[in-house]
Design a protein around this nucleic acid. Structure first.
Lengths: 142, 142
DNA sequence: ATACTTAGTTGACAAAAACAACTAACGACA
DNA sequence: TGTCGTTAGTTGTTTTTGTCAACTAAGTAT
């Protein structure tokens, strides 16, 4: 690929890193970290049920994840129950507290996204979303 | 904004977080961290000359930055010389080693970007870049 | 001269994450 | 059924990364 194009992509990457950094503040005040929020989201919305699936998706150390999950459990956000079909695994579910907290976090994250594009017309917003979809379809993560 | 649109943006954000995570491996083997690489890049390519400017741009703690810069200096990647026009500030410059290392890192980062889009035609690639430019222009970071 | 602000440093500490060694359960198969 | 390689998750130890506050020295304004 042409070097100018590569540089444009890298510039975008730096720009979007900053954007993500600014919007990743939704968890503030909830007592959860960004990672913990993400875990609740993945467990609930994407129906990930085991630590192992979370490790693959998020590419984090399993030892570290084990501790974070233990802490979430101890603080009452999730439950881990042994899977009877494979007693090595534990099935992850949100408690009511976990679910309520996720709702709060989601509301805040929604607001932050909203703010990010607050000055755009409906039409421009649609174009932004199309642009995002396009990029998502073209990036090759393998 | 409509909740579906917000969710599409949030999905993109999660997707792009993963993309950045995967491409942010260019520093491996160089002995520098992602942050240190970024600092060299900003000092050299964007001509940022003081710690203070880096603090504003990257929004990191000045105490932390001070230590990272000290370490970069000690390891021979940068020089910090007192600014005669304002003796509180130090002007940052890359050493030859710093410059060479940045070149290596840049080459690797370029390769990673290239790989990310390796299956695209020239036309598709141009469309991706347009999409990125569009998003960059529409996001409101204030 | 005084008081306020700013650039950068340092100490103390906490949070986040990496790494390796370990246990228990599973799966395959002779 | 027993044994061997693999897999899910745990735990101890350590390093890396980052926060916070107090501090110094230089600049700015009045």
């Amino acid at each position: 690929m042409n070097i100018d194009k590569i540089n444009e992509v890298r510039q975008f990457n730096r720009f979007y890193t900053r954007t993500l950094q600014l919007t990743n503040k939704y968890h503030l005040g909830t007592g959860l970290t960004v990672l913990e929020s993400r875990l609740l989201l993945e467990i609930y919305e994407n129906k990930l049920q085991t630590a192992n699936e979370l490790v693959s998706l998020l590419e984090i150390d399993k030892g570290y994840l084990s501790r974070v999950l233990k802490s979430l459990e101890k603080r009452g956000y999730i439950e881990q129950t042994i899977d009877n079909l494979d007693k090595r695994s534990k099935l992850l579910t949100l408690t009511t507290l976990g679910h309520n907290t996720l709702n709060t976090i989601n509301k805040r994250a929604d607001q932050q996204v909203d703010q990010l594009f607050s000055k755009l017309s409906d039409q421009e917003m649609d174009q932004v979303i199309s642009a995002m979809d396009f990029i998502r379809n073209k990036v090759d993560l393998d």
